[in-house]
Nucleic acid binder design. Structure first.
Lengths: 155, 155
DNA sequence: TACTGATAATCAGCATGCTGAGCAATATCG
DNA sequence: CGATATTGCTCAGCATGCTGATTATCAGTA
């Protein structure tokens, strides 16, 4: 039986657990109530106005069924609007609201602080190396989950 | 706005997402139905017979409220038994069953294969370095989540 | 145009994982 | 001993995140 500390899966869970806790703590301290996933979605929609939900899911590697609830909650909070696409009546186009933009701007320092805090045990160099190795492992394993990263289709 | 690939929190989520998918796929292929968390709990209980739920939670860094459901499901599957402690009537002592032991033995190759698969994009050396950096970051951040790792109390 | 397959979104159901609250039992201290 | 604090566990409630199914729509083709 391998020790937990030798199991990449266990280490992945622990690091993610800490990362989420740090994110939520920093964001709450800044006076906001937004989860990591909600933040990622909001930022992606700001960068890609009018994006549909499937494309959004691919951009940030969500499961397509998860996104329905996330978008629901962002709409509920008034940070997004969702309306039917004129070109494809199956699709819903997502737009960030003014309140959403304000929230994103205001929350960014807390998000940056969180990214720093979760690496606080590492040197600058080690943090960069950890990110490089994670990116490499993720790229190789991209197709192994139901929610792989997908480039936005052009035009 | 930082790119997602420069956000350790995003990378943590993606890596964990892939790790879980790989684990479940390997385990299912081996003919079993056990989640990563259930496996970790079962293994920890086998190594620490009679452990109570809070100590178990600390050993594998769960939240104490999460463990109730996990243990419920393992008991349901017949892999564990849970009975009141004679020394402390608040506590529940956990014991692995024979079926639990058989399952653990049979599932181990699949779990090992999963740990290998989730690092398949990395060289041996890079995989070891990734684990080292994760351990270091996790150790430094241990107290930042509600479910920190705790040593089992002695005797 | 009718048929077939693919696609966008949603839903039901299940399993983490968290917050905060509550209950029962134990430990501690005046 | 008795009041208080602490501890082990459970629960309600919420938010991911998954599987698999369904519905509506679109795209391609016979």
């Amino acid at each position: 039986m391998r020790d937990n500390n030798e199991m990449p899966g266990h280490l992945a869970r622990r690091f993610q657990q800490i990362a989420v806790a740090v994110f939520l703590a920093e964001v709450e301290e800044a006076g906001f109530d937004l989860t990591p996933v909600q933040y990622a979605a909001l930022a992606a929609i700001k960068m890609n106005p009018g994006i549909d939900q499937v494309t959004l899911a691919g951009l940030i590697a969500y499961d397509r069924t998860t996104i329905t609830g996330v978008v629901d909650r962002l709409v509920q909070k008034g940070l997004l609007v969702r309306h039917a696409s004129p070109r494809d009546r199956r699709a819903r186009e997502l737009q960030i609201t003014e309140a959403g933009k304000r929230t994103l701007r205001a929350i960014t320092p807390a998000v940056e602080a969180a990214q720093h805090t979760m690496l606080r045990g590492l040197t600058e160099k080690e943090g960069a190396e950890l990110m490089r190795l994670l990116r490499k492992a993720i790229t190789a394993g991209n197709e192994l989950s139901r929610a792989p990263l997908r480039e936005a289709r052009l035009g």
